[in-house]
Simulated assay, not measured.
Amino acid sequence: MRQNPSFAMTDVAELRRLIAQNPWVTLVSSTPEGLVASHYAVLLDDDRDDLTIVGHVGKPDDLIHGLGERELLVVVQGPHGYISPGWYGEVANVPTWNFVSAHLTGVPEILSPEENLRVLDRLVAHFESGREDPRLLWERPNDADFVRRLEKGTVGFRLTPTRVVAKRKLSQNKSPEVVDTIIMELSEGGSAPNPALAAEMARARDARVTPR
């Protein structure tokens, strides 16, 4: 991802928020057969306060990616959407696409079966937490044998990135009036509703007005 200093996203707390809110990521590896990509859910490592993530892949994706042997690129995609030139007023301009994205690169550490079980347990608990009647990993009708057979079909990993490139392109190069117009158009009730992107733009705008 080509970086532009005006759009660089470097605050660790904001990057952690991006990962936490957008756990469905793309894993990319360069292999002797060419590039390969897979899609899995990840979580921030709850034992760390940096950008370390944990997750798992289903076998044989671990072999396809050379998991633990070579670099893995993890692409985190946040809110994004089309921006019409009509929202800039009566000036010459072209469309663009606003987005928030992060690329985390590093060589993953392979987890032990017990560590992998803990990650699988966390993943299920995390995504079931909003349900009225959550079905957790170790609850019936699952039994211990079923859960351990499930674990054997997966490979858990922990990745502490050695390189991070993150970009928050949210019309920071436009006037405050134009930014406000775009947020309005993207908000619920606007001409092209994209509430998640509108919220990200409002957050970035407010941070510029009141630096933390």
Rank of each mutant, 00 (worst) to 15 (best):
D61V: 04
G86L: 14
Y82K: 00
D145C: 02
E151I: 05
P60G: 11
T10K: 07
E139W: 11
W87Y: 00
L44G: 05
T105H: 09
E90K: 15
P95M: 06
L150G: 07
D180A: 15
P108W: 03
L51C: 11
I64P: 01
V124L: 12
L170V: 11
E71M: 00
S84N: 13
V25N: 02
P23L: 08
A196K: 13
R212V: 06
T105L: 15
D121E: 14
M201Q: 14
L137E: 04
L43P: 10
V94G: 11
D206R: 01
V155W: 02
D180K: 12
G153W: 09
M1H: 10
G81T: 09
E139R: 07
T210G: 02
W97C: 13
D61Y: 00
G86N: 15
L111C: 07
P161V: 10
S129V: 09
E109R: 15
R16E: 05
R140M: 11
P134I: 07
L35P: 12
G58W: 03
A192R: 04
E132M: 09
M1F: 14
I110K: 11
H80V: 02
A198F: 05
V178M: 04
P193C: 03
L67W: 12
P85H: 13
D62M: 02
R122V: 04
I183F: 04
A199F: 03
K152C: 04
S171N: 12
R2K: 11
D143I: 01
P195M: 00
A196C: 05
R135W: 14
V54S: 06
T105Q: 09
P176K: 01
R16A: 01
P193Q: 00
R168Y: 03
